Every structure is written in C-alpha cells, then in structure tokens.
Computed example of a mutant assay.
Amino acid sequence: MRYEGQLTVLRDFVRPLRQQPKKQAILRLETPPRKQAQMGLAYVGKYLVDDTLQDVCVSRIQNSTSLQY
C-alpha cells in the first residue's frame, strides 16, 4: 500500500492536527563577560522591625566572572 496523493494534500490535512506553540519565543540579550550582573530576590517573611511588622526580603548579586581574586 502506497500513498498516491500529492504532498500538499497531506500537509493541508495534518496542519490543523499539529499542536500550536504554547509560549512565544523570548529574545535573549547576551553581554560580554564582566559587563553585566544579575540580582536575585527572595521573600523571607514578616518580622518585627522597630516594633512594626514588616515584610523582609533578601537580595544577592549573582556574578559569573571567571576572575580569580
């Protein structure tokens, strides 16, 4: 048994059955080494600061340089 139709007929039949991409592509911006850093932020919780209940977060600068100090 062999398919005798044309390739465009098969493509037209399969096209609606294909899954559509779930996410849109994201443009990544790359910079040279040691020209950019990233910052991470984490929520710690609520703590008493000067007798006031406040949200506390911790931040950290993430750096991926290959320099040895």
Rank of each mutant, 00 (worst) to 15 (best):
Q62D: 07
A37D: 11
R11L: 06
T8A: 05
Q62H: 07
A37L: 13
P33K: 01
R18C: 11
S59R: 06
L48H: 11
D55I: 00
Q68R: 06
M1V: 07
Q54R: 14
L41F: 07
R2S: 15
G45H: 04
D12Y: 03
Q36L: 04
G45T: 02
R18K: 15
Q6I: 09
A25F: 07
Q19P: 04
V49E: 01
Y3I: 01
P33V: 03
R15A: 05
I61L: 06
V56N: 00
M1A: 12
V58L: 11
Y47F: 12
P33M: 02
E30F: 07
P16I: 02
V44M: 11
A25N: 11
M39D: 05
V9H: 12
Q62C: 05
L17I: 05
L7A: 05
Q54I: 02
L7N: 03
L29D: 12
K46G: 00
G45I: 02
Q36S: 08
L48C: 07
L10N: 02
K46R: 10
L10T: 05
D51R: 08
L27F: 12
I61Q: 04
R11W: 10
R15H: 05
Q62Y: 13
K35W: 09
M39F: 02
P32R: 15
Y47P: 01
G45Y: 00
L48W: 12
F13T: 08
Q19M: 13
A37P: 01
F13H: 03
S66K: 15
R15K: 06
L10W: 02
V9E: 03
D55F: 01
M1W: 15
Y43G: 02
Q62K: 08
R2F: 06
L17Q: 14
T52Y: 09
I61H: 05
C57S: 09
Q62V: 08
Q36E: 15
N63R: 15
C57I: 10
Q24L: 10
S59L: 08
L53N: 02
Q68E: 09
G5R: 01
L41Q: 05
Q68W: 08
Q36K: 14
